[in-house]
Design a protein around this nucleic acid. Structure first.
Length: 215
DNA sequence: ATCCCGAGGG
DNA sequence: CCCTCTGGAT
């Protein structure tokens, strides 16, 4: 993808989705942090199903802590990787209470020091919750960035660096969601739907996937 | 590089 | 059955 393609590329994604938002359900910064932590290698539909009940019972670090390991596991068992996620979220809640006054820190190092919170989760919180200049590279963004040639890279850090270089600042917030939604519904991992892709004309991916045979 | 791990889709 | 899902820790 050429540099002059960036603007029309994002303008086209914007037209398809004028007001993109996370499909994870949350109503506070802490809920966002918890939901993203739980979403590792899981679908957000599955995470939402669990957090709708969980957040009704407990949506503060103190309340989560009161559930304990087994109580929390019972709420998130359907998500997958549930033992480690419960353990990490509890320890994260303990640190939030004891070190950060019960609030989510607006600071990359402090976020990444939380168990279960890596670079990607920290970037989501910084970008979505705090409006900082950050770009979280998840499985969708990694795939779309490489396929299209928007920001190719061998690992997520390299893709993130190129996105930060190439994505216009005005698009930095929404681009995160545009790329995820595009990856989730059109530029899917298995058989990308190139025949219904609005940005195929600027995409490096070859061969374009043909439409399924009609009979 | 490997493990964690259940749900949903093809 | 196989693959994938807004990864992180060891």
């Amino acid at each position: 993808m050429e540099a002059q393609d960036i603007e029309p590329f994002f303008a086209t994604l914007k037209a398809a989705n004028p007001m993109p938002a996370s499909e994870l359900e949350y109503s506070t910064v802490f809920e966002l942090l918890a939901a993203v932590l739980l979403s590792a290698q899981a679908t957000d539909a599955g995470v939402n199903k669990a957090t709708r009940k969980l957040f009704t019972v407990a949506n503060t670090p103190q309340a989560i802590l009161a559930l304990g390991q087994e109580g929390l596991e019972a709420h998130i068992k359907t998500i997958g990787l549930y033992r480690m996620k419960a353990k990490h979220l509890l320890e994260t809640c303990r640190i939030l209470v004891e070190v950060h006054g019960g609030k989510v820190p607006r600071d990359r190092e402090a976020l990444e020091a939380l168990p279960g919170v890596g670079r990607k989760t920290a970037n989501v919180v910084l970008n979505v919750a705090f409006g900082e200049e950050a770009m979280a590279v998840d499985t969708h963004i990694f795939r779309v960035s490489n396929r299209t040639g928007l920001a190719p890279g061998k690992d997520v850090v390299e893709v993130e660096r190129r996105l930060m270089e190439r994505v216009p600042r005005a698009y930095l917030q929404d681009a995160h969601h545009w790329l995820i939604l595009h990856g989730r519904y059109v530029c899917v991992a298995r058989l990308p739907k190139c025949w219904q892709c609005a940005v195929a004309r600027w995409c490096d991916y070859q061969p374009k996937t043909p439409p399924p045979a009609v009979r």
